[in-house]
Design a protein around this nucleic acid. Structure first.
Length: 269
DNA sequence: CTTTACACCTGACTGC
DNA sequence: TGCAGTCAGGTGTAAA
């Protein structure tokens, strides 16, 4: 999916193009994504202005006058901004029309994404209330505390949204490479210094990706249709067998919690 | 409590 | 050309 940088890129585009606009129509063509689409409730958004946009982990937040629309893009979800309406195709599940002239289209072949409506206490939503801190607010010391006594591999820990919000397979992989930490290392016995390095690495990797407009893989495009161009900067993800960019050792691929995990056996310990 | 396995869904790709 | 198997950016839930 869209991991945090892709969601942030999407948020930015929405804020640029749709913020301040009034929602004039909502079409629901698919009633069941990962969770049931609140078809009826969505119609109540008509006539409301989009006041601001936000993000919590990988959840997009659209703040309307009387409600908050929460959107998750799952593995293959994408929001596109269309200035001219084109006929919806197979996986175009929802349209949000602003001021009768701008369509925000939700497309998601795998349907692992979801949309929810909630009130102003969105933080209490059952899917959001236990999210960990945003990567930019992360404190190495807090993270170390939460890791105390746990045996999980550091990579699985990074991808646990209750520990940190918004880190998925790509950026967990990249951050560990940047920090020089072996993805299988038990998290409970990592030194303070390594947590400090890791937290810095996470911030740098994510912020670089956001600046580049997100990673383009199979099906993520920026909402306007431009491709992100961060893919060229991925140093380990998807590079199994290729030489490590630092030491030329062939990168290895292992499976952790069912997810492919690429690392340098020389640089990451 | 922690940890793991599975579920959901579609499409792309590989090998026979 | 077809078909079976594998893999893919996520995450809630059940089971161990």
């Amino acid at each position: 999916m869209p991991e945090l940088p892709e969601v942030e890129t999407t948020r930015l585009a929405l804020s640029l193009h749709a913020e301040g606009g009034t929602l004039t129509a909502v079409s629901v063509r698919t009633r069941q994504l990962r969770w049931p689409v609140p078809t009826t409730a969505l119609q109540k958004l008509r006539g409301q202005a989009l006041l601001s946009t936000g993000r919590r982990g990988k959840y997009l937040l659209l703040h309307f006058e009387e409600a908050v629309l929460i959107i998750h893009l799952g593995m293959s979800g994408r929001l596109r901004i269309l200035k001219k309406p084109t006929p919806p195709t197979k996986h175009d599940h929802l349209d949000f029309v602003f001021d009768d002239r701008l369509t925000v289209r939700y497309q998601d072949p795998r349907k692992f994404g979801s949309v929810h409506l909630t009130g102003r206490h969105w933080q209490k939503h059952r899917l959001l209330y236990q999210l960990g801190p945003e990567p930019n607010d992360l404190k190495a010391g807090d993270l170390k505390k939460r890791a105390q006594g746990r045996k999980v591999a550091i990579k699985n820990f990074l991808m646990d949204s209750r520990m940190i919000a918004g880190i998925g397979n790509i950026y967990a992989t990249e951050s560990l490479f940047a920090a020089g930490i072996h993805p299988m290392r038990p998290v409970g016995r990592l030194s303070e210094a390594r947590f400090v390095r890791l937290v810095k690495a996470i911030r740098i990797v994510l912020n670089k990706a956001i600046r580049a407009g997100g990673t383009t893989l199979k099906d993520f495009l920026q909402p306007g249709g431009e491709t992100g161009y961060f893919a060229v900067k991925l140093l380990v993800y998807g590079r199994e067998g290729l030489p490590c960019s630092k030491c030329k050792t062939p990168l290895k691929n292992i499976r952790l919690a069912g997810r492919s995990t690429v690392y340098c056996p020389q640089c990451q310990r």
